[in-house]
Design a protein around this nucleic acid. Structure first.
Length: 485
RNA sequence: GGGAGUGUAGCUCAGCUGGUAGAGCAACGGCCUUUUAAGCCGUAGGUCUUGGGUUCGAGUCCCAACACUCUCACCA
């Protein structure tokens, strides 16, 4: 791998160039460089035929064509690329430096803006500044860096060697900004609640444990912000949201990273139908803004975002895809057994849900709100008034992935306390660990409310066409490198 | 944790049924003032992930370890 003795021979060669540059009295690591214009803007403002135009830019050398007394450089900055032309006759003393430049170096260049014979907009530099000498060889110029492990470990190389990666993360950032705008325009306030909690609650997941020295106590990295955001409802914040990390100590997959970004929001006096409308609205805005049309390609399929999105009852979908009636628990168990889902010593609700996950979820390509979950699976959710077997909850599926989860929040402290005490068999982690202070908060009175969680990483995957969650997280969780370096 | 696959030059990859390692790019030395993955001539670069084994002989076959990928399990 990298950084072995073999690599060092390349590094040594570059070190020698570094020495020669220093001997010329040039600082190889530059400094402040003012007045730089993005490459994209330079190209955009270029007017053909006007040879009085000047330009100044800075970036990394990604291609270099040395034709003797003339050097063409493709410079990449944050906005794109632009060609720099260096000619011996125009550069004078700086020609020595020009000949020492190589792939990967970061330079600044200023001079006349013009075109070459072949029509390429070019900055004919009369001044070149070395801003940072690169000491390691860059990846292959055409294929870029494709070793997937190295791409994630050395994202700093991936980002400039593979421009589409940079574009993806710009898009991610823009998506999150848009979400914030939409919510703020709707009167929501952004808040931050503890990432380190003494009781990990709000979801069924194994937490990471850490320790605080001077308090001498264990803390848990949060698996969800839910119980704190609801405390804010009690406090009188009527529309709150948080976009931040959750941590779950579970397996990794194309859809699971141990730390992932969630939007959670709570709206007083709303319910899960209100959350459905809001979800559809937010995501539709994003599709409109960041996708071409409302039919989005994802994983060789087309997702149809045309509104309104399908709303289907949990029981109805279970019937549709498994043939089982949710109330006929014997047939549900039989089917689960048939599929090898392990239903012994497991509560009915858990078996039903295992079957649902095995049979239904993988079919939901177009946006689908699955509504009215079995109440036993939803300890933090208000039950349906007309049918208390079910809870006022939905999950949104897109592209066979669970993207959002929402419900009418339970605000009855007595029911909540009972739910906390109920432990379902077959479910390793309790859905809701007893949090006495949360019950106390509810006893002061929490307004009826709708709550919504949207998995931001998965949403970005859909909108950007990324098939793995690690493609949309800058530094995904990886195994520690033990061998070599 | 189970299963499948992959690991060869700095990078991207070839290497058939076992006979002692190749290309392109990058590098190094030349030539070249309008190139576009520039071109041409030349040079150098490898404990074929690691450790065992089979064999006269292993990049190639077998076993094990390590890493990565996919997949199943796990997973609001």
């Amino acid at each position: 791998m990298a950084n072995t003795e073999d690599t060092n021979k390349f590094e040594r060669q570059r070190q020698q160039k570094l020495s020669r540059i220093k001997e010329l009295g040039i600082d190889p690591y530059g400094g402040r460089y003012d007045g730089v214009e993005p490459a994209k803007d330079i190209k955009h403002r270029f007017k053909d035929g006007d040879d009085t135009q000047q330009a100044k830019c800075a970036g990394r050398i990604v291609l270099l064509r040395d034709i003797g007394k003339l050097i063409f450089i493709t410079l990449r900055d944050w906005s794109g690329t632009i060609q720099i032309g260096l000619s011996k006759s125009q550069m004078g003393e700086q020609w020595t430096l020009a000949k020492l430049l190589e792939l990967g170096d970061i330079i600044g260049a200023a001079g006349r803006l013009g075109k070459t014979k072949t029509g390429e907009i070019t900055v004919w530099a009369d001044n070149v500044t070395l801003l940072s000498k690169s000491l390691l060889p860059p990846p292959e110029k055409f294929h870029g860096l494709s070793d997937i492990d190295r791409r994630f470990r050395q994202r700093y190389v991936d980002l400039w060697a593979n421009p589409e990666v940079m574009e993806l993360f710009k898009k991610r950032s823009a998506i999150i900004s848009t979400i914030r705008e939409v919510l703020k325009d709707s009167g929501f306030m952004e808040v931050e609640t503890p990432m380190m909690q003494t009781i990990p609650g709000g979801a069924a997941a194994k937490p990471f444990i850490t320790h605080h020295n001077s308090l001498n106590m264990d803390l848990f990295l949060r698996i969800a912000p839910e119980l704190f955001l609801k405390r804010l409802l009690v406090g009188g914040m009527e529309k709150v949201f948080e976009i931040n990390r959750n941590f779950r100590n579970e397996g990794l997959s194309k859809q699971h990273n141990p730390e992932f970004t969630m939007l959670e929001l709570y709206q007083a006096y709303a319910d899960y139908f209100g959350m459905m409308d809001l979800t559809e609205q937010i995501i539709s805005v994003l599709v409109e803004k960041y996708c071409e049309g409302d039919h989005v390609k994802f994983n060789d399929e087309t997702i149809d975002f045309t509104r309104p999105w399908r709303r289907a009852e949990y029981a109805e979908l279970l019937k549709e895809y498994s043939g089982c009636d949710i109330d006929d628990i014997a047939s549900v168990r039989a089917k689960a057994r048939e599929l090898g889902l392990g239903e012994a010593d497991t509560d009915d609700a858990v078996v039903i849900n295992k079957l649902f996950e095995a049979v239904v979820e993988d079919n939901l390509v177009n946006p689908t709100f699955v509504i009215d979950y079995p109440a036993a699976l939803c300890p933090l959710t208000k039950r349906k008034k007309d049918n208390p077997k079910y809870a006022e909850r939905f999950e949104l599926f897109i592209g066979r992935m669970e993207l959002a989860n929402a419900y009418t929040e339970l605000n009855d402290p007595d029911v909540q306390e009972d739910n906390f005490k109920t432990q379902l068999r077959g479910q390793e982690e309790s859905l809701a660990t007893m949090d006495a202070d949360f019950i106390t908060a509810l006893k002061y009175g929490m307004p009826p409310a709708g709550g919504l969680g949207i998995g931001i990483d998965r949403l970005v995957m859909i909108l950007a066409g990324a098939l793995s969650i690690r493609e949309v997280i800058l530094f995904p969780t990886l195994r520690k490198k033990t061998s070599k370096e």
